[in-house]
């Protein structure tokens, strides 16, 4: 059960304070963030830094597509923005699932704080740049973030473990369904936005870019 007395507002805390609190205990970080008068700004900082870090970590796609330097910077910023939008969708999804499936009504800002803080591990997404081990590191960070989310949902939504895990899983499934149905135009729009920023049609799948017969035929022969 989440300690509601912790809702009393305390002193503003810095982003790094929250990060270190998170590494120590998810619950402590969450309660500290909630106590803080700058909690919304803190969550926004976590999500934005994670978004920037993720965009930098994934920037190999931009290099592979031979994007010019200025467009590269714009593309990274666009990726960061899309990451933040993805966060908003994720929050709404979990908030809806908690309400509709589990009949737990929580404040939207509370859901936002819970999901936002689970993004702390993703602030290290730039480590994906590391050669050979980068992709594995990114997978581990995502697993860490997923585990943190379940943990935070447990005390922020007043769930038991199984409910928290199910809520996250159903929320994820919900987003997948959205992507395949009414979210398609939005996906198309985001792709279009990326292409406009890059100044060319981006091939986001590196295996298609480098490892297909078609790509092989287009170079060297």
């Amino acid at each position: 059960m989440f300690a509601y007395h912790l809702w009393q507002q305390g002193e503003p805390v810095s982003l790094w304070y929250i990060v270190f609190a998170f590494l120590n205990s998810n619950a402590k970080a969450f309660s500290t963030a909630l106590e803080s008068p700058n909690r919304n700004m803190l969550v926004l900082q976590v999500v934005t830094v994670a978004g920037f870090s993720d965009a930098v970590g994934q920037s190999v796609v931009l290099f592979a597509n031979r994007v010019a330097p200025l467009r590269f910077v714009i593309s990274v910023l666009i990726s960061m923005l899309l990451f933040v939008l993805g966060y908003v969708v994720w929050v709404l999804s979990l908030w809806l699932v908690a309400d509709v499936v589990f009949d737990h009504r929580v404040a939207l800002w509370r859901a936002g704080a819970a999901v936002g803080l689970s993004y702390v591990p993703l602030m290290l997404s730039f480590l994906a740049l590391m050669p050979y081990f980068g992709s594995s590191i990114l997978r581990l960070l995502n697993i860490w973030a997923a585990m943190a989310l379940v943990n935070i949902l447990r005390f922020s939504f007043d769930f038991i473990w199984l409910e928290a895990a199910l809520c996250a899983a159903i929320g994820l499934a919900f987003i997948f369904i959205l992507r395949l149905t009414i979210g398609r135009p939005v996906l198309w729009l985001t792709l279009r936005l990326r292409n406009v920023a890059a100044g060319k049609k981006l091939q986001l799948d590196l295996s298609k870019l480098f490892y297909t017969d078609e790509s092989n035929d287009s170079r060297g022969e």
Partner: peptide, 23 residues
């Protein structure tokens, strides 16, 4: 480790002047 790919990436992207060199 983090900076190691950038020489190759920059070369490929043609950031070191002109387009990337095709053989």
């Amino acid at each position: 480790a983090l900076s190691s790919p950038f020489e190759a990436l920059g070369w490929w992207a043609g950031w070191y002047g002109g387009e990337a060199i095709e053989a």
